[in-house]
Each structure stands twice: as structure tokens, then as C-alpha cells.
Design a protein around this nucleic acid. Structure first.
Lengths: 256, 256
DNA sequence: AACATTATTTTATGATCACAGAACGCCACC
DNA sequence: GGTGGCGTTCTGTGATCATAAAATAATGTT
């Protein structure tokens, strides 16, 4: 992970001993991001965010010490966060050495997408039953933001907004057990998603069509409260990218 | 967790400071269970085993100290294992107090079962494609053991063998991403499963019928390499118990 | 004498522990 | 009935240890 990927707090050595204790009381330098939260929770949140934002690349090895230094958090909280993310599939631990971002095979990516189809399709279907009009409006607003980010070729904003769009749907599905499962799949996919960014800029037409079309279909299905159509639209949305020429070649996979 | 649930090592205070260092060299008292493995991995394995065996009851609170003492492992490795299991849904962490085995609502159990139907049904379908004759034989042997344990009303053996039967199938499905998802669901269910034990002894007829019938159907579907039938048999197997009168009442749920 | 191979030291990294600090609940006391 | 002390429990840090990789030195071979 090259420096400055994880957004560390402005002040250099952030969480010095005693920072947590003063956190609630004073507006001290570092811990402002999450005042009451424990260090390990913060480490987990920041690290997960970084993974989902695609700031780690497949095969990249992360060492505890460098991570801890970059985050400005002690090693132990970072260790816990890292192990938690490892158990969620975002990293894998080398024999008895450091952790590494997994490098997937094409087969694994296909399996991953298949499971995402099932689970996120199910979530979309569930959401179609529960969704309210104001929630549909909220999704519409997010979709507008997505289209704007596409128009600007702002891939960072696109990734972020697209994630917000999807997880808002999963939240509406109102199945608290389903969400962590979907998150696990996203954590595994995220390092690859960053590789599709060149596609966004090189073939904007194709990409944009596939990306918006299915979201629109999704919104229409929600409006009609049609679970089957919602599920189908979600499936198409997930599979859409794989149909873009050059998609599979752009991923960093092992040759098997 | 009442004492002696987790199989601790015979020697009382096992992992005294320095135990790990001598582990590889001498045949010291404690660490023999997993010589080369790290303490935190051992803690995780033992704890997970205990959860899956149903040794924890819903609502039970576990303190770090007591767990560490019972396992004969230092607090910190146990802490990591506990947090990992928490992120996998086996425990939940009170505000900033100890950890507790989640108490589910009926709705949550229904959602859990629905997801298990989907994922484990899918796994069964996948397994039906891949399975070999010797693997079918292996499953048959396990099923025989299950029936024997039912005949003996040996609920402990039944739980263990049933788990082995199911996970052997999921392993055959050969989807390394699917298995951790299913494991998460089992970790959430396990504390409740222990409550169905009285059903095993009080209504042996009904229970035995439902339990064996669907496993037989599953084996037949595997023999015929019929994914659809396998999926359907698996779904029935998971739902079977819920049809037994008194099932829902036996679970320890919150009143909502 | 130059290269390759092996042995040794150095360094980097993870794992663990002992200790100290802080939050929360509990109980007694006013 | 409210309030303050006490104990339990989690949380985090620094130091220490073991181990594996890397770098360096040493030695043998052609």
C-alpha cells in the first residue's frame, strides 16, 4: 500500500498514549473522527473503508507496523481489526507471516459473482416489498449523483456512490443477517473493482449505458413493488460489467 | 458457560508465561493440542468448536478472564478469537462491556433459516454435480452413524455427526467462498440447536423420521446427480425441524 | 582470481505478556 | 431516593521473545 492511501488524520503521530482518554472531554488533535469509539473499532472502520474504496490491490502485503504507523493507532487494535477483516475475506494470512490481499482465480471471481447474484438479488426482492416512496426518492437522488460522477469520469465518487446506492437497498431489505454476508462478498471484490476504473474512462459509452440502465430498471421495479423484477434487475446490474469487452483481462488474477 | 464445557487441557494452569517458547522443544504439559499453531488460532478453533457444539446458551455472557482461564490461554489471544467470532455473529459485544451470545427474535430465526435454505440448498445443488461415488459412500457411512446416535438418543454425537454430514457436502460443493458464509449462519444457529435436544428424547418418532428421511432423499439425489432434487431435499431438511410441534416454543427467543 | 554456494549475522515482523488506565455496574451509606 | 466508593472488566501500551527473510561474510571450486 503506497503511502497516503488510508486517510490518516492530519496531525502526524495521532493517537498518542492518552489520546483516547481525553477524547470525549477536549477537542484534541487526533481522535476527533470517532470520539467515543474504541481504537480497534476505529481501526476496523478506517481499514474497511480503505478496502472498499479499492485502495488495496490484489496481492499487496500489509505489515502490522506500517499499518499502525500510517493509521496513527497502536499495533494491537490494528491487529484485531486486521484479523477481523481477514476472517471476513478481505485479507488472507500468509503461513505464519504477514497478511496479504488475496489474489483470486477467474473461477473464484465467477463464484463470487454468482453468490452476489443470489444474495443481492434476494435483498433487492426483499427491499421491493418494504420500500417506501421517500426511500425511492432517496435512491433516485443517489442515482442522479452516480450519473453525474459518470459524466465527470470521477471514478472515486462513482465507486462510493454506487456502494451507497446498493447498501441503501440492502438496508431497506431489513434482514440484519443478510447484510454482513453481502459485505463479505464486497470486501473480496473491492480490490478488483479498482481495476475496472480504466474501463470507465476508456469506454464511457458502453460502461455508462450498462451501469445506469439496470439501476433505472431497479428503481422502476421498486416503484411497481415488483420483487421478481427487482431481483432480475439486480442480477443484471451485477453481471453487466462482466459483459464489457476487456473486463476479465483487466482484473489481476492468478493464471491458475 | 458452566465450568468444563470447553475441553480444557488436563493440567490446571496451562499456558503460563513461557509455555509457548518451550512448546516446540519439550513435550510440555499444555500446548500439545496444536504444537505449531499460534495461540490465537487455537483459541479460535476451540471456541468455535464449543459454540458449534452448542455449549453456549442464548443470552449467556462470557468474560474474557474466565474464558482465558478455562482455556489455559492468555487473555489477549482469547480476546482476538472472541472478537473474530463476534464479527462472525457468534457473539455480540455489549456497549463496552463483555460479550454475550445473541438472543434472537423469532423473525431473525426465520430469516436465518431462509438464508440457510438458499445457501445450503445451493451448496447441495453444486455438490450434486461434483460428487463422486466414494464420497457418496462416505456420506452414507456418516448417515449410518447419525441413525445410530438417534437410536441411542445420544444428542451430542448426533449434533456432531450431523454437522460433519452437512459440511462434508458443502466441502464437496467446492466453492471456497460459500463455506464461510454458511459457517456464519451455523454459528448463529448453534446456541438454539442445543435447545432442540429435549425434542430428540421426548418425541423420538417424529424427530427421527424427519431427520433421516431428508438425508436419505439427499443421498438419493446425489446418486442420481440431480441438483434440483438435492437442493429441494436440503431445504426440506432444514425446515423439517420447524414443523415438529413444540419447536418454536423450545427456543430461547426474546418476546420481541 | 572470479564466481557460486553455503554459513552467519542482521534486520524485520509477528506473537505474547505484564501492567496500567478508564468505564461501567453495584452496593452501601447518608 | 440519591450519591459516592469499590470492584470487575475491558482496552491499550511498551517491552520482550521467537522466527523467518534478507543481507553479508566466508569458503570452496573451477
Amino acid at each position: 500500500m503506497q503511502a497516503s492511501k488510508v486517510h490518516k488524520t492530519p496531525a502526524g503521530k495521532a493517537a498518542t498514549p492518552g489520546a483516547r482518554r481525553r477524547a470525549a472531554g477536549t477537542g484534541s488533535d487526533a481522535v476527533r473522527a470517532a470520539p467515543g469509539e474504541a481504537a480497534h473499532a476505529r481501526a476496523y472502520a478506517v481499514l474497511k473503508e480503505a478496502v472498499l474504496a479499492g485502495n488495496f490491490r490484489p496481492g499487496e502485503v500489509v505489515t502490522l507496523r506500517s499499518l499502525a504507523k500510517q493509521l496513527g493507532i497502536g499495533e494491537m487494535p490494528v491487529r484485531e481489526a486486521l484479523r477481523r477483516l481477514t476472517s471476513e475475506g478481505a485479507f488472507e494470512s500468509l503461513p505464519n507471516r504477514s497478511a496479504r490481499v488475496p489474489v483470486l482465480t477467474r473461477r473464484q471471481v465467477e463464484q463470487l459473482l454468482e453468490l452476489r447474484e443470489d444474495l443481492e438479488g434476494k435483498a433487492a426482492a426483499l427491499a421491493a416489498r418494504n420500500i417506501t416512496l421517500v426511500q425511492i426518492e432517496h435512491l433516485r437522488a443517489l442515482q442522479q449523483g452516480i450519473e453525474q460522477s459518470l459524466a465527470r469520469s470521477d471514478s472515486r465518487a462513482h465507486t462510493s456512490l454506487n456502494m451507497a446506492f446498493h447498501f441503501e437497498i440492502y438496508r431497506i431489505a431489513d434482514n440484519p443477517i443478510l447484510i454482513p454476508l453481502i459485505q463479505m462478498l464486497w470486501l473480496r471484490m473491492a480490490p478488483l473493482v479498482a481495476n475496472t476504473v480504466p474501463l470507465l474512462t476508456s469506454k464511457p459509452g458502453v460502461f455508462r449505458k450498462t451501469a445506469t440502465e439496470n439501476h433505472e430498471r431497479l428503481l422502476a421495479a421498486f416503484q411497481a413493488r415488483d420483487p421478481v423484477a427487482a431481483q432480475e434487475a439486480m442480477r443484471r446490474d451485477l453481471l453487466g460489467l462482466t459483459k464489457v469487452p476487456g473486463y476479465w483481462e483487466s482484473l489481476e488474477l492468478t493464471t491458475d
